[in-house]
Design a protein around this nucleic acid. Structure first.
Length: 286
DNA sequence: AACCAGGGGCCGG
DNA sequence: CCGGCCCATGGT
């Protein structure tokens, strides 16, 4: 991989294992807008970023050399060699097939706070709806910048009332967001400390928040705390796992977790992401 | 352990 | 056009 800067724009060349569409559309993040094929506007890390992928490479703008090196490089997980992970996982024929459909997925390193609120909203909800609610919350409490509203800071969102959250179409989740903000504000939960704990300890910490169960906690661990052994098991992953590994039989999530941990270990999170994308694009049903 | 929590898109009739 | 079902679920 190489990169260079020109006119506040970074061009990345020779980047392997990266497809911007697969990376953004695989359900791990919500604040992006497709402008054209392989061209997106992303709101993350308190910034707006336009990203376009072509034969020449990947263009990021506006983006200085410093912003690329200190922020986006890590955000897009560019320091990780996915070919090693894919090679290891491909020993399993099911995953080999799944990976063939999504060779360019990368797991983003998002901000824990935004990720946590986003996945609380995600429960029993659809992706287009989740995106609308997060946008609405950002408009109400986030800072406006050229090109859009940033995700709110902890202090800004801590002022949100239940009625205001309801206006943002959070539905029955308003009380969960309120509980989350209370626990962060009063120090019951410290997300930076939580991120440094082991996967199991961090998960228990996150699950102290009302509305954060196994699935939501696993998403936060995987997508914002670099816990690559986390294995978020939603209805799609449950379905695809039962279909391929449990003889199409209904199986408790706990059993699926044990199986995934044993089979894929620290790569379980990556396996989950390939399987999720595969299940959704191929409409795997039991 | 079944049921409920808004809200909205989708689907069959 | 409308009811039923489902949704990157968790609490009770």
């Amino acid at each position: 991989m190489n990169y260079s800067e020109k006119n506040n724009c970074i061009l990345i060349t020779n980047q392997k294992d990266f497809n911007i569409e697969q990376t953004l559309e695989c359900g791990q993040c919500f604040r992006f807008e497709r402008l054209a094929p392989l061209s997106y506007k992303i709101i993350a890390l308190n910034r707006i970023l336009y990203i376009t992928q072509s034969k020449e490479g990947i263009f990021l703008s506006p983006c200085t050399m410093k912003e690329f090196e200190t922020l986006w490089y890590n955000y897009f997980d560019l320091g990780r060699d996915y070919s090693i992970i894919k090679e290891e996982l491909s020993k399993d024929p099911v995953l080999k097939t799944a990976i063939d459909f999504s060779k360019g997925i990368r797991i983003l390193n998002q901000q824990p706070f935004e990720c946590l609120i986003s996945f609380i909203i995600s429960q029993n909800n659809r992706i287009p709806m989740i995106k609308k609610v997060i946008e609405s919350i950002s408009r109400k409490w986030g800072r406006q910048t050229d090109g859009g509203y940033l995700f709110p800071t902890v202090s800004a969102l801590s002022f949100a009332t239940e009625a205001e959250l309801m206006e943002c179409k959070t539905g029955f989740r308003y009380k969960y967001i309120r509980d989350c903000m209370d626990k962060i504000s009063n120090g019951t939960i410290d997300l930076e400390k939580t991120a440094r704990l082991s996967t199991a300890e961090a998960k228990a910490e996150l699950m102290k928040i009302k509305g954060v169960g196994t699935k939501v906690a696993d998403c936060v661990l995987l997508f914002s705390m670099e816990k690559t052994d986390a294995f978020p098991t939603d209805v799609w992953v449950k379905r695809v796992m039962e279909y391929f590994y449990f003889n199409k039989q209904n199986t408790p999530v706990k059993e699926i977790h044990t199986f995934a941990a044993q089979k894929w270990g620290r790569y379980a999170g990556f396996a989950q992401q390939y399987l999720f994308y595969y299940a959704r694009t191929q409409q795997i049903k039991t």
